[in-house]
Design a protein around this nucleic acid. Sequence first.
DNA 1: GCCAACGTTGGC
DNA 2: GCCAACGTTGGC
Length: 139
Amino acid sequence: MAYWLFKSEPNAWSWDDQVAKGDVGEEWNGVRNYQARNNMRLMEIGDLGFFYHSLKEKAVVGIVEVCALAHPDSTTDDPRWECVDIRAVRPVVKPVTLALCKADPRLENMALVKNTRLSVQPVTEAEWTIICEMAGVPF
DNA sequence: GCCAACGTTGGC
DNA sequence: GCCAACGTTGGC
């Protein structure tokens, strides 16, 4: 069981869009970055992730679960690009902002803090626990 | 809207 | 295989 973080611009694909897909979930498509793709190839069914809104909001707003392994990205014919499917599990009680993560010395090595441009990132178990606590989510 | 950071591309 | 140029992301 591993933990991840999925970054999205809310005007392109928001938490509400994700929730509307229900348990069927949705492809996390459109990723054109090798590091992000490689992370998705490592994912297993049932892995959990944070759903993060970039730009104006800059906060973790929900919890998602991987519900399909990496497969070709349907938005391109280029065989290099693959993606997983994810489904919404539950919203957070309190959004955890980037500023909060930066302010917590336990999170200073988080990819979210150190590598702001990576759109699909690994999250350590320690980071997962800390942010779930801050978010008021029982995981 | 600007700019820093980073990734990718392509010429050599 | 190096590196300059360029494009994109995302925080501010």
